[in-house]
Design a protein around this nucleic acid. Structure first.
Lengths: 187, 187
DNA sequence: ATGTTTTCTAAGCCATCGCTTAGTTATATT
DNA sequence: AATATAACTAAGCGATGGCTTAGAAAACAT
C-alpha cells in the first residue's frame, strides 16, 4: 500500500480559509497558501485540484465555522431577539486576532458579484438564502403573520447584516453595537 | 516645444474608474486598463506614475461622479428625507449598464480593510467621514438636537448605506427599495 | 527484503503581472 | 528647414501568478 498523508485536510483548509478571509481571493497567492497551510503546492493541488477548489472548500469550512451561531439562532425561542443575538455574536471576534474581522461570505459576494465564476457565486447565494429563510422562520415564531411583511423584514435584516459585516472591518465596537440597536429598534 | 497629449486625462481616468469599480483593484490588470483607456502603458505610467496612482485618481474621479447626488443632499431642506432620497439616488443605475452596480468606495473599503496600503485606506476613510458629517448636518436641520443621538443615527445611516452598496450588486430593485423604506421607517 | 503505491520535496513550466526602455513621431520654437 | 522637447509605439524587463513534473521517501502487502 501507499504512504499516508502528513496533514489533515480539514486542518489545512481552516488555515487557507483564514487567509482568504483576511486577504480575499485574488490577493491570496498559492505561495502564501502553501506557507500558511504548511504543505507543499503539490499537496494543495492533489487534495483540492485548484486554487478555486480550495477556495470553495474554504467557504464551506467558513460556513461550518458559523454553524455554532446558526444553531444557536435556530434553537432560539425568543423571536427577533434571537436574530439580534446572532448579529452580536457575529461581531464577537476572538481577542487573539486569530480570525479576521468581517464575514468571508460577504467579502466573497463583494469580490465576485461581477465575476464570471458561477460556482462561487452560487455557493454564496445558497448560503445567504438559507440565512434569510432562517430569519423568516424566527420572525414568524416571534408572532408576525403577514407573509409580505415577513419577506420585507427578513430582506431588511439580511442587508443590514451585510452592512454590519462590512462595517465590522473598520468601525469601533461602540459604533457596531449602536448600529445593531438601531437596526432592531422597533421590532 | 513638445508634442501634445492625444488624450484628456480626465476622460481616461473615468474609463479606468469604471473598470476598477467593476472588477476591483487586484482583478484589474494594467493590460486591461490600457485597452479600456485606449492609451499605451507608457502613457498610463507617465501620467499617473503607477497602478496605485491611477487607482487613487479613479477614486477621486468617483467622488466627483457622486458630487451631483451629494450636492443635492447638501442643498436639501427636508432633513432626513433628503438622506433617504440620497439612498434612492445611489441605487438608480443608468439603464445602459455603462456603470457597475454598487459603490466603488465601499468596494475599496472591503478590498483594502486588511491591506497595508495606508494611502488608499486614508482616502476612503476621509470620504466616508465627510458623508457621515453631512448626515449629521441634515439630521440636525431635521430638528434633532441630542448630540449623542445624532452621532448614533448618522453612524447607523452610514453603515446602512454600506449594506445597501453591497446588496445593490445582487439584490432586486424591490428588495433594495424595501430595504430603504425599512431603514428610514421611524425617522 | 522486495515490490507497489501514494505522498513528499523541490525544481521548473508557461502566462501574466507591474513597470521600463529604445526608438519613432508629432509639435513648437528658432 | 533645423532643432529641441515631449508623447507616441512596441518590445521587453525581472518577478510572480497558477499549476506540473521528476524523483526521493514512506507506508503497507507479499
Amino acid at each position: 500500500m501507499a504512504r499516508k498523508k502528513e496533514y489533515i485536510e480539514e486542518e489545512v483548509i481552516e488555515k487557507a480559509m483564514v487567509l482568504f478571509w483576511r486577504n480575499g481571493y485574488e490577493a491570496t497567492s498559492v505561495r502564501m497558501l502553501e506557507k500558511a497551510m504548511g504543505i507543499n503546492q503539490f499537496s494543495i493541488y492533489s487534495s483540492f485540484g485548484s486554487k478555486q477548489g480550495l477556495f470553495l472548500k474554504s467557504i464551506h469550512c467558513y460556513e461550518g465555522y458559523l454553524q455554532g451561531m446558526i444553531e444557536k439562532l435556530r434553537n432560539s425561542t425568543n423571536g427577533v431577539e434571537g436574530i439580534k443575538t446572532f448579529f452580536y455574536d457575529s461581531i464577537n471576534t476572538p481577542s487573539d486576532c486569530s480570525t479576521p474581522k468581517g464575514c468571508l461570505v460577504t467579502n466573497t459576494l463583494n469580490e465576485f458579484a461581477n465575476s464570471e465564476d458561477k460556482l462561487i457565486k452560487e455557493q454564496v447565494i445558497l448560503f445567504t438564502t438559507a440565512i434569510k429563510e432562517l430569519f423568516i422562520e424566527k420572525l414568524r415564531e416571534g408572532g408576525e403573520e403577514d407573509e409580505e411583511l415577513l419577506i420585507k423584514q427578513s430582506n431588511y435584516l439580511l442587508i443590514a447584516k451585510q452592512g454590519l459585516s462590512v462595517a465590522a472591518k473598520v468601525a469601533s465596537e461602540k459604533e457596531l453595537s449602536d448600529y445593531i440597536e438601531m437596526t432592531f429598534r422597533d421590532f
